[in-house]
Design a protein around this nucleic acid. Structure first.
Ligand SMILES: [Mn+2]
Ligand SMILES: [Mn+2]
Ligand SMILES: [Mn+2]
Ligand SMILES: [Mn+2]
Lengths: 217, 217
DNA sequence: AAGATTATTTAGATTTGTCTAAACTTTTAA
DNA sequence: TTAAAAGTTTAGACAAATCTAAATAATCTT
């Protein structure tokens, strides 16, 4: 598997987790920041290698082998993120970009020894689950702040890791994984949410609310 | 700089350190396990980027920028080797191949934080010096066992890291960096050497003697 | 100082991953 | 239920890195 192929498998994996339908060429092009025609070419190659099943015009989905491969890459990505944060004192907004490179290092021994060195962590710095050696992981039960109930209290268990600016915003406002958050008020007009945590009240935009993941306490 | 370009710079760097002459196309092809024609193509590209100076038919040498870049790659390679050995308990014959991949990760912050995490090591697991952030390193004073004087006592300070089998041989015979070695006898017939260390005597072949580096005590 | 040998470069192909523009399917909506 | 719009694939091109075969330059050898 080349670097490009690995990135496509990972992208298909993420998109499959978002919508349950087959992944469309355009969605994949958007995710990969490339053109639909490039995607079609790559899909054909992955289908040739039995990593995906593909019907022209109908979209693509991972085969068993393809999913297993994607999970391995995700495992490496998240383990490296933990390493960068815990051992090298990176901040949670810095780890993703470097992990994008490290996830492609090919050495099963390295991955497993790293896992052991880190104490077999179950989640990465953004609250995403880390698959074990066999590809198994627990699905984390979470709802976004945007879907939370007024008056209820939650624990912050995850964040969307795709925007560094969002993570810096959370840092600036002292919100992190493990923060207990009470929903004071949901404003129907703009879908902003007033929350309270650590005895501070804060109004966050809909955009923030959608990217912050909680679990009921 | 692409992965291929980085590997060429590193190869030129290593060959320059071995012979002081300009590096020939064939030597580079041998080092890179590729064809001379491929080397010519790549040299032209590196010359275009001012990483090497190149006169057709006369060989190639690193420019200041090219050497600085090569040293950075070498720094990363050796730091990762230390990481793998010290933190992940790899053996010294396993670290090189994985470091060949890790040395291409592009993040100055990662490199410097890793350096700090490891306690700013001065040498890698094979006794080779690790350049600091600015590319400076001390040249290590060493002679090969093949050039050592009969009757003298030395300290083992380095090994040629290019053969895993050689490193495993040293492990099997309990020779490692820091081992004190006395030269008992040099056999002119086959250039084998009888040495004594830890109260054991051992005859090693010329091949072994050439790849084991010592410093006088 | 040729002539032969060795070293190096050029010419022309190939693979991977990408692109634009054009053609073709599927979906939407009148 | 057909025409327009949206989505997707094909055709043809390009850059990177490699190869083989042929041409050219440098170096040995007698
Ligand atoms: Mn990430
Ligand atoms: Mn993450
Ligand atoms: Mn090495
Ligand atoms: Mn080494």
């Amino acid at each position: 598997m080349t670097l490009a192929e690995e990135n496509y498998l990972k992208a298909i994996y993420h998109l499959e987790n978002q919508s349950s339908n087959d992944v469309s060429t355009n969605a994949l092009a958007e995710e990969m920041q490339t053109k639909a025609s490039s995607v079609t070419d790559m899909i054909k190659k992955l289908a040739e290698k039995n990593m995906v099943s593909y019907i022209p015009y109908q979209g693509v989905s991972l085969s068993k082998a393809g999913r297993a491969y994607a999970v391995k890459v995700v495992r490496k990505h998240r383990l490296w993120e933990v390493f960068l944060l815990e051992k090298l004192n990176f901040s949670w907004d810095e780890v993703h970009d470097v992990a994008e490179q490290l996830e492609h290092i090919k050495s099963e021994k390295l991955t497993d020894k790293l896992d052991e060195f880190l104490g077999f962590p179950k989640v990465d710095p953004h609250g995403d689950p880390i698959p074990d050696k066999d590809g198994n992981f627990e699905k984390i039960d979470k709802t976004s702040l945007a879907d939370a109930k007024e008056g209820s209290t939650y624990l912050c268990v995850g964040v969307d890791d795709s925007s560094n600016d969002f993570l810096k915003y959370l840092d600036a406002n002292h919100i992190s994984l493990g923060t207990t958050i009470k929903i004071i008020h949901k404003e129907p007009f703009d879908n902003s949410v007033k929350i309270k945590f650590n005895n501070v009240e804060l109004v966050v935009s809909e955009n923030v609310a959608k990217n912050l993941f909680l679990t009921a306490v």
